[in-house]
């Protein structure tokens, strides 16, 4: 977690508190913010339109070779925008198992 990683000796802190590694927030998994509910896509209904992808505030969907989209539980905060905006109602929010 970020807090632990920030605890470094002063000499090791990059100049002026600059962050040297681009996009390293990826290491911070926001998936555990979900309150036990996650989106599931029904491939039968999916028309590969990409609404889930372009409307995701957490970039939790990525393109697949076959045109479908992969969902990434590491970052999905479970907001449900994708389910709401799916034009074919192919995405449903389902309860997650413990």
């Amino acid at each position: 977690m970020a807090k632990v990683e920030a605890m470094m000796p002063w000499k090791d802190v990059p100049l002026g508190g600059t962050i040297l590694e681009p996009g390293n927030a990826r290491k911070f998994k926001t998936g555990d913010w979900r309150s036990k509910i996650r989106p599931v896509t029904d491939k039968e209904k999916c028309i590969k339109c990409g609404m889930c992808w372009i409307f995701c505030p957490d970039m939790a969907y990525t393109h697949r070779e076959d045109g479908y989209f992969d969902w990434n539980g590491d970052y999905c905060k479970g907001c449900g925008i994708c389910a709401k905006e799916c034009p074919k109602d192919a995405i449903t929010m389902v309860a997650e198992e413990e």
Partner: peptide, 22 residues
């Protein structure tokens, strides 16, 4: 033709469902 590249990446701490970060 939407670009795949994400200059701004996952792992940010915006609230669930934030319209601003989107």
């Amino acid at each position: 033709t939407l670009p795949r590249e994400e200059p701004f990446v996952s792992g940010h701490r915006a609230c669930q469902g934030c319209g601003e970060v989107l």
